[in-house]
């Protein structure tokens, strides 16, 4: 359980995190989502006591991180894949971390096996690929068999097989009753891994919701209809709060009516439908829609040509 209360962090003039409150519950994977520079990493560093909040507080399992006597058993964290001395082997890196809290050598071997680094554990971490570095970071997080996992962009640099592996690993960890918080700037990845979402932009909370609700509310759903009598159907459907666009010859995009209603209307008028598909707004679109005003670094929008004329 992670609880943030009115968490605020200012670096000089710049406010990285502003009045952020949320709760991360055990048992589900919670995605921490926001564009680059939204304050995700800063928030995670504050959770781990690496950065001190300007005001507000954040607790893990009821206590501030630094108050825990056995921190590695409370929270396993991977804040950046490269929080590893490049001159040390993966095995010795884990051994040194384990030693701080008396974790036995056996457990070091165990986590190396879990993350699949057995082949390279005795090699220096400086030569690791990004994906191997991520796996080593995850191994450090798992070392103390902690009740809470905090992972910053864990899928970065992993190959598809690695992404699938971490997705399942995190789901399993949550299913065992652990609290799992992972950040990403990729909504599509979150949708597959997380059940709950905390979305921030420019350091402020934008949404604290389930993934399903997020998608439903973020963008209006439309229904795609294909029929030989497109024009007749269009006239039947269009009306108050219902808009119909012709996407293609014989294809309509209907907003404001459910697919059930459209099917019923078509059936009543004996219009044969070749296709009737509810369109989910793509997750990425929903996310971009929601954070549009909160993007820190944005390419200037291109002016449509001929606008001046």
């Amino acid at each position: 359980m992670i609880e943030a209360h009115a968490l605020t962090k200012r670096y000089g003039e710049r406010t990285a995190v502003s009045d952020l409150s949320f709760t991360v519950r055990p048992g589900v994977v919670t995605g921490f989502l926001g564009p680059n520079g939204a304050g995700k990493s800063t928030t995670m560093r504050m959770i781990l006591g690496l950065d001190a909040p300007t005001s507000g507080r954040v607790t893990v399992n009821g206590k501030q991180y630094a108050e825990h006597r056995a921190p590695l058993h409370e929270v396993g964290a991977m804040l950046e894949a490269r929080a590893i001395h490049t001159g040390r082997t993966a095995y010795n890196h884990l051994l040194a971390l384990a030693a701080t809290t008396g974790i036995p050598r056996r457990r070091v071997d165990e986590v190396i096996e879990i993350v699949g680094l057995g082949q390279v554990a005795r090699k220096r971490a400086g030569g690791f690929s990004l994906g191997m570095g991520q796996r080593l970071g995850i191994a450090s997080a798992l070392l103390g068999d902690p009740a809470t996992l905090v992972l910053d962009e864990p899928v970065n640099g992993l190959d598809p097989e690695g992404i699938l592996w971490i997705r399942n690993l995190l789901k399993d960890q949550a299913a065992e009753g652990r609290t799992v918080l992972l950040s990403s700037h990729l909504m599509s990845e979150m949708a597959l891994t997380a059940e709950h979402l905390i979305v921030i932009g420019r350091g402020r909370l934008i949404a604290d919701t389930s993934v399903a609700d997020f998608v439903r509310t973020a963008a209006g759903a439309s229904v795609r209809v294909r029929t030989d009598e497109a024009e007749r159907l269009r006239q039947l459907l269009v009306g108050h709060e219902v808009s119909v666009a012709s996407v293609d010859r014989g294809v309509l995009e209907v907003t404001g009516l459910s697919s059930d209603r459209i099917g019923r209307i078509a059936a009543d008028q004996a219009i044969a439908l070749a296709e009737l598909t509810p369109q989910q707004a793509s997750l990425e679109e929903a996310f971009m829609e929601m954070t549009r005003d909160a993007v820190e670094y944005q390419a200037p929008a291109r002016e449509p040509e001929g606008l001046a004329a």
């Binding site: 006597r69 056995a70 921190p71 058993h73 001395h85 001159g87 040390r88 082997t89 010795n92 051994l95 040194a96 971390l97 384990a98 030693a99 701080t100 809290t101 008396g102 974790i103 036995p104 457990r107």
Partner: peptide
């Protein structure tokens, strides 16, 4: 034999010793 180990100074020393000799 493997308690939910607390951080003690002796353990930190041990950790730093590992760090020092493995570079």
């Amino acid at each position: 034999a493997e308690p939910r180990g607390q951080v003690t100074f002796a353990r930190v020393l041990r950790s730093e010793w590992i760090k020092m000799r493995t570079l």
